[in-house]
Computed example of a mutant assay.
Amino acid sequence: MRRTSKGLIGGALFTAVSGLALSLYSSRIARQAEELVPADGRFLDVAGARLHYIDVGSGPTIVMVHGLGGQLRNFSYALVDLLKDDYRVIVVDRPGSGYSTATGAMPGIVGQGAIIADFIQKLGLDRPLLVGHSLGGAIGLAVGLDHPHLIRALALIAPLTRPQESVPESFRGLARVPARARLGFAQVLGTPLSRLTSAKTLEGIFAPEAVPEDFAVRGGGALSQRPIAIAAAAADLGGVNDDLTPMAERYGEIGVPTRILFGRQDAILDPAYHGHRTAAAIPGAKIDTIEGGHMIPITAPEACARFVRAAFAAG
């Protein structure tokens, strides 16, 4: 009995020490990521969140919303520079991503749509073009459904638009994060596991194109390995179908001009399902496809810039 007790105590002590070591490791990775990718812009408090954003250029306004596990440098990597001479371009970190934080429970797609709507109102923007990439496209659609008076048009790049029966392989690790302890899990195991699998994950997200060597810094990729970002991305992924299922049934109500752009080789979201089917459901919507994968704002910025300009003109 004594040996058994000592074994149990020793095992518990080992587990506690290991957990502490992994937690400290995760904190160190988070600090390093923030040193590599510091906050680029300013902050604004809105209902439900404190948002970090950049605001560059002048002219008619464009607001950009990034996707799952991303942050605003996904757009400022190249696309913003191609637009800022003719437009005022505002790119925002979603709650839990980059340097934005939720002030309560992590909001779902509809909740984040309301946050973006309040962001537009708090900045006093006059019906900007709303650009959304991937999960940001779903948030754009939520704004188009519930707050259409605030925007002139939607430009959706490789958007998530419909409920998913299965999780893309690159994001299956996030799907395994327990819902009741997301931040704790991310602090102890999420960041170390993310470090081990990041190369393969990014290869899947960018496929068939290569991951840019400078993506970690210039594209903000390093920030996605912080515990807070992993927990937020897991929450986003865990709740998408709850909002997308009823949203998809309402796409016929969307009255703002809507354009969709997909890479034909997108390995994350099916262009036929999320693109062509959704374009057919939205009155007057148009869809274009180009050569490329899911991360075309980074890998094909010139084509994306032409798409955004055309969407603005159509609005």
Results as ranks from 00 to 15, higher is better:
residue 2 R to Y: 07
residue 3 R to F: 07
residue 6 K to P: 00
residue 7 G to P: 01
residue 10 G to V: 00
residue 11 G to P: 11
residue 11 G to Y: 13
residue 13 L to K: 10
residue 19 G to A: 07
residue 22 L to D: 05
residue 22 L to W: 04
residue 26 S to G: 10
residue 31 R to G: 10
residue 33 A to G: 04
residue 36 L to Y: 06
residue 36 L to W: 12
residue 38 P to L: 06
residue 40 D to F: 08
residue 43 F to M: 13
residue 44 L to V: 14
residue 48 G to A: 02
residue 55 D to L: 09
residue 58 S to F: 09
residue 66 H to A: 03
residue 67 G to V: 08
residue 71 Q to F: 06
residue 74 N to G: 15
residue 76 S to G: 00
residue 80 V to W: 12
residue 81 D to R: 15
residue 89 V to W: 06
residue 94 R to P: 00
residue 96 G to W: 02
residue 98 G to T: 02
residue 101 T to R: 10
residue 102 A to K: 02
residue 104 G to A: 06
residue 105 A to F: 04
residue 106 M to G: 08
residue 106 M to I: 06
residue 113 G to Y: 03
residue 125 L to V: 00
residue 125 L to D: 05
residue 127 R to Q: 13
residue 128 P to W: 06
residue 129 L to D: 00
residue 130 L to K: 10
residue 130 L to D: 11
residue 136 G to K: 11
residue 137 G to E: 08
residue 137 G to W: 10
residue 137 G to F: 01
residue 138 A to T: 03
residue 142 A to L: 05
residue 152 R to Y: 01
residue 157 I to Q: 12
residue 173 G to E: 03
residue 174 L to W: 11
residue 177 V to I: 13
residue 177 V to C: 12
residue 179 A to M: 14
residue 181 A to D: 15
residue 181 A to E: 15
residue 183 L to Y: 14
residue 184 G to F: 14
residue 189 L to Y: 15
residue 191 T to H: 05
residue 195 R to M: 14
residue 199 A to D: 14
residue 207 A to V: 00
residue 208 P to L: 06
residue 210 A to M: 09
residue 210 A to D: 15
residue 214 D to P: 04
residue 215 F to A: 00
residue 219 G to Y: 12
residue 228 I to R: 15
residue 230 I to E: 09
residue 232 A to P: 00
residue 233 A to W: 04
residue 234 A to W: 08
residue 238 G to D: 08
residue 241 N to I: 05
residue 242 D to E: 15
residue 247 M to G: 08
residue 248 A to V: 05
residue 250 R to L: 09
residue 251 Y to L: 07
residue 254 I to E: 08
residue 255 G to S: 12
residue 255 G to C: 00
residue 256 V to R: 10
residue 256 V to D: 04
residue 260 I to F: 10
residue 260 I to R: 04
residue 261 L to P: 06
residue 262 F to D: 00
residue 267 A to F: 13
residue 271 P to A: 10
residue 273 Y to C: 06
residue 274 H to Y: 07
residue 274 H to M: 07
residue 278 T to Q: 11
residue 283 P to R: 13
residue 283 P to S: 11
residue 287 I to D: 06
residue 298 I to P: 02
residue 299 T to C: 07
residue 300 A to T: 10
residue 301 P to Y: 09
residue 301 P to C: 08
residue 304 C to F: 05
residue 306 R to Q: 08
residue 308 V to R: 13
residue 309 R to V: 08
residue 309 R to F: 08
residue 310 A to Q: 14
